[in-house]
């Protein structure tokens, strides 16, 4: 399955919807989107990965790159993910300590609101 990307803004949060496979072939498109969003002043990103079928280290690298970019603007990049097979790669690499990972968009929005 190819990669589908979409995004919309809710209050100060930009929600990035990702569907399909994030790998060495498709990850550059996600990287371009994240860079574009940051360049346009969107510094609080929430990446919804509930419809992601596959994620490899290339995809992790793109997410880390996005996190570095938003942090440079005192922003945030957090994730929505409950799929065990996707969460496993975050655990193996220790990135559960780097990203905020939520069970739903609403939960992430609520936590984000409390930080304000």
């Amino acid at each position: 399955m190819d990669l589908k990307l979409d995004h919309h803004n809710e209050d100060r949060l930009t929600i990035v919807e990702v569907e399909g496979e994030i790998d060495v072939y498709t990850a550059p498109r996600l990287r371009e989107l994240l860079i574009d969003l940051v360049n346009k002043g969107n510094f609080h990103l929430l990446v919804n990965m509930e419809k992601v079928d596959f994620l490899d280290s290339t995809g992790l690298g793109v997410l880390v790159g996005g996190l570095k970019r938003v942090r440079a603007h005192d922003g945030s990049l957090e994730l929505v993910c409950t799929q065990e097979r996707i969460l496993k790669i975050f655990r193996i690499t220790g990135l559960t300590k780097v990203f905020g990972i939520y069970a739903s968009v609403d939960e992430a929005k609520e936590a984000h609101g409390k930080d304000k």
Binding site: D56, S57, L60, G61, K68, T93, G94
Partner: peptide, 25 residues
């Protein structure tokens, strides 16, 4: 080594993530 914080995640580190993932799987 395993990553501890964002500052350690250089591009060269990320390029080697694949091996760490394979070893974990």
């Amino acid at each position: 080594e395993q990553p501890l914080d964002l500052g350690m995640l250089s591009d060269s580190f990320m390029s080697n993530f694949g091996i760490a993932v394979i070893e974990g799987l």
